[in-house]
Design a protein around this nucleic acid. Structure first.
Lengths: 136, 136
DNA sequence: AATAACTTTGCAACTTGGTTGCATAAACTT
DNA sequence: AAGTTTATGCAACCAAGTTGCAAAGTTATT
């Protein structure tokens, strides 16, 4: 049985062909991907199916979505046992050169002190700049 | 001469009727507004004109835009002498109850240490939760 | 005051990303 | 094998943002 099948089953999803394909694509990337990235990659696949595949992945916490401010939502794999809790949150980085969005898994979001009465539920933190690849 | 005229002229914009109207609307708000908010408020005004008004305001650093993750960009007044430099950046707060977006002007974005080779240009940090008004 | 030059406004129309409804196809259940 | 559930694919739609172009308004020039 395939590795991807495991991952899908572990997260309570049936391992369909489409899902394996998308999961493979996500696994081989070290940057986050958008729906339209996937559309380009699998130009025979239907946009809506890809869309719904990502949605189910997200619901089942196999991936998380990233709003990097580019106007198109990006998706990236969660850590193995991630439950998408606040303490799982990490900083995302958008490179203005190569336009890639990175999960900085080892960079946790620093804590902020809010004004009195404001209660935090979650945080989105996107750093923009030049990535290690483009800096050279 | 009106106060709003001053502000516009200080920022190198001609004080047209439309601009005064929009600036007034921004001044009387303590939360950030979206283009569609303005459309509702001024239902006679053209969407594109409002759009371009906001754009010129932003170009001239009278306001800054906020991507709060709701899918529609919000705008809020800059501080008096703001140049929108990195050290002017503050945290934004989106209340999931009242759906309002606040500028936390007194809450600077904490510094983050990035992986080797990553160079920061700017940061977007949006905290989501319940605001002081809704918490009661 | 009349003309020219530039700026702002308004309408129409379009693009992109995301989304829903519904029908077909595939996969499980008994 | 029939019936139920789940996944996929097509069409169509929606919202937000954006562009092109012409009309209206402003400012400058003589």
């Amino acid at each position: 049985m395939k590795d991807t099948d495991d991952k899908l089953i572990n997260r309570n999803m049936k391992p369909t062909a489409m899902r394996e394909l998308v999961l493979d694509a996500l696994l081989e990337q070290n940057v986050a991907v958008s729906l339209s990235d996937l559309e380009k990659k699998f130009d025979k696949a239907d946009k809506v199916t890809l869309y719904r595949t990502l949605k189910t992945f997200e619901e089942n916490k196999l991936i998380h979505s990233i709003d990097d401010g580019t106007g198109s939502v990006k998706y990236a794999l969660c850590a193995e046992n991630c439950q998408c809790n606040p303490h799982d949150l990490h900083v995302h980085f958008f490179c203005t050169e190569c336009k890639h969005t990175y999960c900085l898994n080892d960079t946790p979001i620093p804590s902020v002190t809010l004004p009195l009465g404001f209660e935090i539920k979650t945080i989105n933190m996107v750093v923009k700049g030049t990535c290690a690849n483009c800096k050279k």
